[in-house]
């Protein structure tokens, strides 16, 4: 039975990190209907900035982690201001092409630094002995990752429900024209959405980098790995990203734990999330929490 609970714990850990990584997509899509293909690169940049501040500058890692979130907050805001603001009102395919171009530019810039081609790891700052209860283990790295993830998700949920700016962002998401009519600055909302996505990406990068080590290929791949989570959650729902992330994490762990190695199966942990995604989308094409928009002509 401890095996089952171990898989549950691992699934929740992995799923919550997926949710945090997916949050960046959701925040941008929610306000501006743009799918940011360069999100993986921002995740990687966040992790590398944390490392550089800790190891090269000598700032304690907890402070460096926070500073990295602030830096990516402004970095993502600048990206929106420079590249995407001019595209407001342009066809969505143009905007997506810009984010693809942005991905290549960020790739190129990171390859100019040692992070592009070398491997690093954060200096150890957490106890190495895992916490074990009833035969179920969780490492401190994972536990801290989960705590940060849920704190951030709770913070974002509160922000969107209770704060004036959050409510403005939801209004823009619902109807841009009506929002402008009541005095909300839509460009500012877009900028803020990108900035918040940058902030969550840095947090995700820090957590993933702590688990896998800092390897550019591994880190930026998470921009793609979390795609099924984003789609399953419904693209514009924070709640959806959390639920879908945990579902995907659990499916991966259960498939790997119970299917792999039996009946000649292998790698089901990789493929099962996509199979489940397809099945769910058959019944709920807008994802679990996606908004089904009805257009009346």
């Amino acid at each position: 039975m401890s095996y089952f609970f171990q898989l549950v714990v691992s699934g929740i850990v992995v799923g919550s990190i997926y949710a945090l990584s997916a949050l960046g997509f959701v925040l941008i899509y929610k306000s501006s209907r743009v799918l940011n293909i360069a999100h993986g690169q921002i995740i990687a940049a966040g992790a590398f900035i944390t490392y550089a501040l800790t190891v090269w500058v000598g700032i304690p890692i907890y402070i460096a982690f926070g500073m990295s979130m602030v830096i990516t907050f402004f970095l993502a805001m600048s990206v929106e201001r420079i590249f995407l603001r001019r595209l407001i009102g342009e066809p969505i395919i143009s905007v997506i092409m810009v984010t693809i171009g942005l991905m290549s530019i960020l790739d190129g810039l990171i390859y100019l630094t040692p992070f592009g081609t070398e491997n690093f790891s954060f200096p150890p700052y957490l106890p190495t002995t895992p916490i074990t209860i009833g035969g179920v283990s969780i490492s401190w790295t994972q536990l801290v990752g989960v705590i940060i993830t849920f704190s951030m998700i709770a913070g974002f949920s509160w922000f969107f429900k209770k704060s004036t700016i959050g409510i403005s962002m939801r209004a823009v998401s619902d109807d841009q024209m009506a929002s402008m009519a009541i005095g909300i600055s839509v460009p500012k909302v877009f900028g803020l959405a990108w900035a918040m996505a940058g902030l969550s990406a840095a947090a995700a990068g820090g957590i993933i980098g702590n688990i896998t080590g800092l390897n550019f290929d591994t880190l930026h791949a998470f921009g793609i790995v979390v795609f099924p989570v984003v789609i399953l959650g419904g693209l514009d729902s924070i709640q959806g990203a959390v639920v879908a992330g945990i579902i995907m994490g659990l499916i991966q762990q259960f498939a790997s734990g119970y299917l792999d190695g039996n009946w000649g199966l292998n790698g089901t942990g990789e493929v099962m999330p996509y199979i489940i995604l397809l099945i769910i989308l058959l019944f709920k094409p807008h994802g679990l929490f996606g908004i089904h928009e009805i257009e009346r002509v």
């Binding site: 171990q6 993933i208 762990q253």
Partner: peptide
């Protein structure tokens, strides 16, 4: 692209 290998290792 595994974030966790617990299931496999167990």
């Amino acid at each position: 692209k595994d974030l966790d290998n617990t299931a496999m290792l167990k």
